[in-house]
Design a protein around this nucleic acid. Structure first.
Lengths: 355, 355
DNA sequence: TTTTATGAAGAAAACGATTACATTTTAAAA
DNA sequence: TTTTAAAATGTAATCGTTTTCTTCATAAAA
């Protein structure tokens, strides 16, 4: 009797091992089909039965096995979104993740986050894993290149939303920032503040966002009749160390720029460290505007002028787009473009009123 | 004929819909059991057969359906880790996530990241989802309280590794930082630099890390024979706004502190902004040491002295612990404690040599 | 009262893998 | 050559749901 008692307690709590719709059916005296109907709120079950089943389920602390569920249900109803970002340490992507998650949570979806660190190899592994896990769809900031993979994804009909970085030739929904405009605004501001030799530290060649930011830089110079000077165009691969190196290269020039536009927050940090190392003052000796606002931008001395990207909103929008796509497979492809905002602080020079 | 052609193309590319072990078996002229054996590299299959099956699998671009696999396989072999963090926007947790992911990737595991934003409600939802998805185990930085839930997890035998925040009464593996020591070092340093009125901005009451940091603060004061002054003890809930408010409260005191120890990076940022707002100079008018090093700490003026937590290592260790636990269910509980490091920069005063 | 909808519930077939057990083939030993 | 062991493969049950048919019961219509 004592032993029995113990066994009972053990079994009843060990939810992870057993506990299926079958147990509930047996105890409630109905079929598994009915239990399933009750639990999924489908029609045509007598109120009395509903109550009875729910009571048993609650008492047994039943929890649906989603793995089994996904075997039957269409992938579009798996209640899982995948999110593939390229650098989770970048606050911009952390914001995006928060946005996606917020939306997903509201819809009782769960998300799979993977971080490629710009590695195409990882990207392939993660996407394959997601397919293999039958996620409903994926939101992804793709690495550079990798076009065969995306070809395959198209033919596999995996619902996909591209974020931040676009791949024009593919029929995917997208949410991106108007990078060209953001860069334009930044460089235009530097020009307004009297700068004529303006350097750029760009991200990764071949990524749409880098290219758009470069166009914005070029256009702003062009509009002001300033020449595009080759030695002032550098790349920092979206990494802090890269930004620092690029800044060093620019400062080491015979005729260094008087202002620099840095194409993301990590590189900007590298810039600042190099500038401090060389004991130069911002903005007098070197003016600076960075892409991506960050919580710390305001705390710097001087506070950093930045192009603020709405990361959180981007995430929410992407999740919403994916959600809609799943509801309606054949609706038109949507390309959402969000506007960046120039947050003017002190790092770009003194002419703050003229805007 | 034309129509047939189109249909064929459509079907053959739609990998997402069909493509099972059965197709391979049929084409290769073997049973599904044999295919499974080949694909899982189990013994006792003729070389010839292996080659044949592999060839077919490759040609069909077969990809295992992990959902089906998880129905049969023990949860401990599901190749999925769950990771629940409390604030993905905090670089500390982003570092942890990177660490976990790196380890998991090396083992061909995939991770589910969820972000509770300190919400216990979300924590419950996410953990239930993970159980429902049959993850192998979960690495979690728990929110405050929520003890019933963890009771349930223990009896459900969900392999769990607690990180950053401990719950002493539960038999879980843990990886944490020696928070007490970190805080002690920071406050000790402030004392060495001549400070006698030292404020603390602590995190969330009831979390083990906050409490340990408080103990460190208290002990450092005690060791130096300094009194614990109630009005200098504030809380900022680990958020930037909270930190700023707390700092304001401290500065508004009749007799404000000459130095402040802030218990995480976001709150420190809030502090700095408030200090700037009030046009006070660091460290002369108010000295500051923050918990958590960040990439931007060095770029501030003056550079910020911080207690550096090895977030990445913490993540790697947690993943490794979980991995080992799955291999050996009954091995002894492990409690890994990592050491923080005081990174001395300029924000804590001038007495830099005496360490 | 009989017929006919319609509402409730059950039986059983999937979903796609893994695996215990059974069977066949092959090689070694007698 | 027969016996025996081991290797290779196949058969079929199983994991826990969902869902399509059926079937049964009840109420409305004839």
């Amino acid at each position: 009797m004592y032993a029995n008692g113990i066994t009972l307690i053990f079994e009843s709590t060990n939810v992870r091992k057993n506990m299926s719709i079958k147990q509930i059916a047996k105890i409630a005296g109905v079929s598994t089909a009915t239990v399933s109907r009750v639990l999924n709120g489908s029609d045509k079950v007598k109120n009395e039965t509903i109550e009875q089943v729910q009571k048993v389920a609650k008492k047994l602390n039943y929890q649906r096995n989603n793995v089994a569920r996904r075997m039957k249900v269409k992938a579009t109803e798996s209640l899982i979104f995948g999110l593939v970002v390229s650098d989770i340490n970048n606050p911009f992507f952390a914001d995006i993740a928060r946005g996606v998650e917020e939306f997903a949570y509201a819809k009782e979806h769960v998300i799979f986050i993977c971080n490629t660190n710009e590695s195409t190899e990882k990207e392939i592994f993660f996407l394959n894993s997601m397919i293999s896990e039958k996620v409903s769809g994926v939101i992804i900031a793709p690495t550079a290149g990798n076009y065969q993979l995306f070809d395959k994804l198209v033919s596999d009909r995996l619902p996909l939303v591209l974020i931040d970085r676009l791949k024009n030739s593919f029929p995917f929904d997208t949410v991106s920032i108007n990078n060209e405009k953001g860069a334009f605004l930044a460089v235009q501001r530097l020009i307004q503040n009297g700068h004529k030799r303006i350097g750029i530290i760009n991200g990764i060649k071949g990524l749409s966002n880098s290219e758009a930011r470069f166009r914005g830089y070029k256009n702003a110079l062009g509009e002001a009749g300033l020449p595009l000077i080759k030695e002032l165009i550098t790349y920092g691969h979206f990494r802090e160390a890269g930004g620092r190196e690029a800044m060093k290269k620019l400062l080491d020039l015979k005729k260094p720029p008087t202002a620099v536009f840095s194409a993301n927050n990590l590189m900007t940090l590298g810039c600042i460290k190099e500038i401090h190392e060389q004991n130069l003052s911002i903005p007098d000796q070197i003016a600076l505007i960075g892409f991506d606002d960050s919580t710390w931008a305001e705390a710097l001395t001087p506070p950093l002028t930045t192009v603020k990207q709405p990361g959180y909103e981007l995430g929410v929008n992407a999740a919403e787009l994916l959600y809609k796509r799943l509801k309606n497979k054949d609706s038109n492809i949507m390309n959402v473009v969000l506007n960046p905002e120039l947050i003017i602080r002190d790092s770009c020079g003194t002419n703050r009123k003229s805007s």
